[in-house]
Design a protein around this nucleic acid. Sequence first.
DNA 1: TGTCAACTGACAGTCGGTGTCAACCTGCGG
DNA 2: CCGCAGGTTGACACCGACTGTCAGTTGACA
Lengths: 207, 207
Amino acid sequence: MTDGGLRERKRTAAMYRIQTEALDLFEQRGFDDVTVEEIAEASDVSPSSIYRYFGTKEELVLWDEFDPGMGPLLAAALSDAVPLDGIRQVMTDGIDGMSAADEQRLIRRLRLAALSPSLAQAAVARSYAFAEMVEQVLAQQLGRPVDDLEVQVFSHALLGGLLGMFHHWQGTDFAEPLAGVLKRTFTIFEEGLDIVSARVPEPVVEN
Amino acid sequence: MTDGGLRERKRTAAMYRIQTEALDLFEQRGFDDVTVEEIAEASDVSPSSIYRYFGTKEELVLWDEFDPGMGPLLAAALSDAVPLDGIRQVMTDGIDGMSAADEQRLIRRLRLAALSPSLAQAAVARSYAFAEMVEQVLAQQLGRPVDDLEVQVFSHALLGGLLGMFHHWQGTDFAEPLAGVLKRTFTIFEEGLDIVSARVPEPVVEN
DNA sequence: TGTCAACTGACAGTCGGTGTCAACCTGCGG
DNA sequence: CCGCAGGTTGACACCGACTGTCAGTTGACA
């Protein structure tokens, strides 16, 4: 699922090591109060290399070793299944394949992302790119133009919903296992997002 | 709907004027190739003032004179209607109240946002904040905790869908009036986002 | 081993963004 | 008309993220 050559593996290993140092420093002193130079020093590489690896300071937190494989995987899943099911399958598999350490690291990264505005912003923008992938595959799948309104609304709403799921997970302090939350989220999707009809009939209590 | 005192109005007027200069420059030479200092010079203010007004360079494009009023408006609309209807009402009213010049300016800003990565990122993050407003009001409305999964998924999916709508509008070069696109978007919402069942039965053509 | 491409570190420079301080306007009481 | 207080502005200095370049090194591969 991961590597190509040895170079690639070494690169990934280096990035993982640098990210580990960075997460430690960020947790100790806050994202904004740690400079890239300090991380470089702690990781025994030059600042230049950090930028070559990650591109931006934010990516030091957001980068995920498993990300690169996601694209093709998603495309494949969407090509031979009902869209929603395909995406559910990919995500479920991904979560099931995560070790406890992986999940712990994910939680650390999410916690950090929630604490720093610039990180939160980058995180949202990053997952937005995900929606654009779904767009493309879905449009082709349905034989519609990529700019089709329904395709756009569906793709982005789906992605938004998943963001909401992570928001909930974070808000409840990661109490429930992610797999369970994901399952409930897709149930909500399947029921058609009809929170509207679930509105309580009683009048609102004054603030 | 807008001002408070005279100070506030002067400030808004100055921001509008600076934004106009900035939009011109950005369109001529691209967002990244114009410095804040140049905008300051063109607008006859100091760079310091621009940062005091807008905070960031991105906000020079994203700022909207009507934004400040949106919060209370939305809260009110959500408090006494079915959530989806309330939001639809606010947005429909907002669009109906826009002059042709306002819409033209909006289009200019959207065009710019699509051309520069940093702008696009900031724009997405900005609209994300909108979802958090919906979250709060909706949770209170339904008598559920803000971190309720369904509330989170609904709010963010809704916001995502609206983002998708703008994406479509942009992709079709703003051909259809925004009011029409909005109406169709909410129709999609009401039908429960069931693009799943609309899947074409034929097998996919090989790429 | 030799060659070539990819990678790395060092360095200088640009620019976005923040904090500080002095000058200035604006309205108010004497 | 004169000070005076609060908010607003401009000038300046500073930090740090990020880019481009260049020379030196390392690794892949014949």
